[in-house]
């Protein structure tokens, strides 16, 4: 059994935990925003350029698909380090919360884009064909058919990505990104302050639960029946 001294809770630096929570939420919020902004178009591009699809470009698709796979196969910790020069160039720093957001986005975009591609594949081909028969242009099909018809699936994909991002943020401590996960590693794991680790884990759990419930309720609200 763990020998826990809950009196330590009184000594926990709640300000530090509060700051770490804020860091996590900042990293999550900002990186999620950019992930959707970049991942959604990339997912649409993957979908329409795939062989046999609306604008089949097999070679472009093969290149994009390979890049997505490369980024998805790199462990996030390695991505953090590898991207440091790029991050520095982009945001002026390669450390801290700001420095963590770039690798978070780079890690999550391919993941989200692939999910988007799969969600779009579920759209009834007959509906796309019907739109074409009515003279719809590609932009019509994307904005009036594909995205609205797959909205519940897209929200689901965003939820899964956000939860994955919570996991990624835990590793951002490597470059001084901070956040709850970092706190759990530094105090809980490296300094054996199990209590702090438990508190942070409970907070992370609450965050993940909250994200999932919010996502699920949005999906319920926009289902089509």
């Amino acid at each position: 059994m763990l020998d826990l001294d809950w009196n330590l809770l009184l000594e926990i630096d709640w300000v530090e935990i509060g700051g770490a929570t804020l860091d996590t939420l900042t990293m999550l919020g900002v990186s999620m925003l950019f992930t959707v902004l970049a991942g959604l178009p990339l997912g649409v591009l993957l979908f329409i350029s795939a062989p046999g699809q609306l604008r089949a470009r097999p070679r472009l698709y093969a290149v994009l698909s390979f890049l997505v796979n490369v980024l998805r196969s790199l462990p996030f910790v390695i991505l953090l380090i590898v991207l440091m020069p790029f991050t520095l160039l982009l945001v002026g720093t390669s450390i801290g919360v700001a420095g963590a957001i770039v690798p978070l986005v780079v890690g999550a975009v391919p993941f989200f884009a692939r999910l988007v591609e799969n969600v779009l594949r579920e759209v009834d081909r007959g509906v796309i064909e019907a739109s074409q028969s009515m003279g719809a242009r590609l932009s019509h099909i994307v904005f009036k058919v594909l995205l609205p018809e797959s909205l519940p699936g897209l929200i689901g994909a965003a939820t899964v990505t956000a939860v994955a991002l919570v996991g990624y943020t835990a590793m951002s401590g490597v470059i001084g990104g901070g956040g709850l996960g970092d706190l759990a590693i530094r105090y809980g794991y490296q300094r054996f302050q199990t209590e702090i680790m438990i508190v942070t884990v409970v907070l992370l759990l609450a965050l993940v639960q909250g994200l999932q419930s919010a996502g699920d309720s949005l999906v319920r609200r926009c289902r089509f029946d």
Binding site: D124, G126, V127, S133, P148, E149, L151
Partner: peptide, 14 residues
């Protein structure tokens, strides 16, 4: 040119 389909192909979201 109107077209009508066996499986209707209506937009579920509308």
């Amino acid at each position: 040119i109107g077209m009508v389909f066996q499986h209707f192909n209506l937009l579920r979201s509308r």
